[in-house]
Structures are given as C-alpha cells and as structure tokens.
C-alpha cells in the first residue's frame, strides 16, 4: 500500500461523464449570473438528489450566499457537448466573509510573500 498503484481503474472504463449511478446522487453543472449583467457562467459541478436541492447546494457551495445571483443547474447527463477548447473561467471569491480574504490578516513585511 505504498501508493494507490494497486487501486486500478481498469474496471471503470470511461463511463460517460455524469451518467447517474443507482445509489449516487446525480451530478449537476452549475451556472451563475452575477450582479454585473454578464450572462450565466459555468462555475463547477456538484451532486444533489433533485433540481431544487441542486440549486440550494449551489448557493451554499459556489456562492457562499452572495445575493443578487441567478443560478441555473443542469443535470450533467443532459448536456450535449462538442470537444471544447475553452479557457479556464475566472472565479470570484465570496465577499461576505471578510476573513476569507488574505488581506484580513496583517503579515509584517519582514516575513515576505505569503
């Protein structure tokens, strides 16, 4: 057990992304429109039993409850996709908890970059 080498994934040949499994909550893709009038943007995925809880989970996981946001969730298995060459989306951290921001903590200059 020196490494996960023995944990082989030979048996799990690329099941389609998001294919629901018998006892596992389905995977949902989350899209959020922020306050700046831009269109909904993919921010990530999560698991939920149904659409309503997916929206609530998205609020908790991806917005940390910032207001003024519109959330779309789409079951991942319902998405048809081409082969994408997309750029990595930029993410905004939550603004409501000030200590989540590194500048909340005063680190003396002598200590250097942190």
């Amino acid at each position: 057990m020196s490494s996960p080498e023995s944990g082989s994934y030979d048996a799990t040949e690329a099941a389609p992304h998001g294919k629901p499994r018998a006892t596992e909550w389905p995977l949902w893709e989350v899209f959020i429109r922020g306050q700046h009038g831009l269109s909904h943007r993919h921010v990530g995925s999560l698991h939920a039993a149904d659409a309503e809880s997916a929206i609530k989970n998205a609020r908790d996981v991806y917005t940390r409850r910032n207001e003024g946001l519109s959330i779309w969730v789409v079951e991942a298995s319902a998405i048809a996709a081409s082969s994408p060459e997309e750029k990595g989306p930029l993410y905004e951290p939550s603004n409501d908890k000030v200590y989540r921001h590194p500048t909340f903590f005063d680190i003396p200059d002598e200590v250097g970059a942190m």
Binding site: Y9, T12, E13, A15, G44
Partner: peptide
C-alpha cells in the same frame, strides 16, 4: 468533480 470528468464517480 474534476476526477469525475475522467469517468469515475465520487462514490
């Protein structure tokens, strides 16, 4: 979720 895009589930 990133791992799930490679065809393995979280569970």
């Amino acid at each position: 979720c990133a791992a799930e895009t490679l065809g393995v589930s979280r569970d």
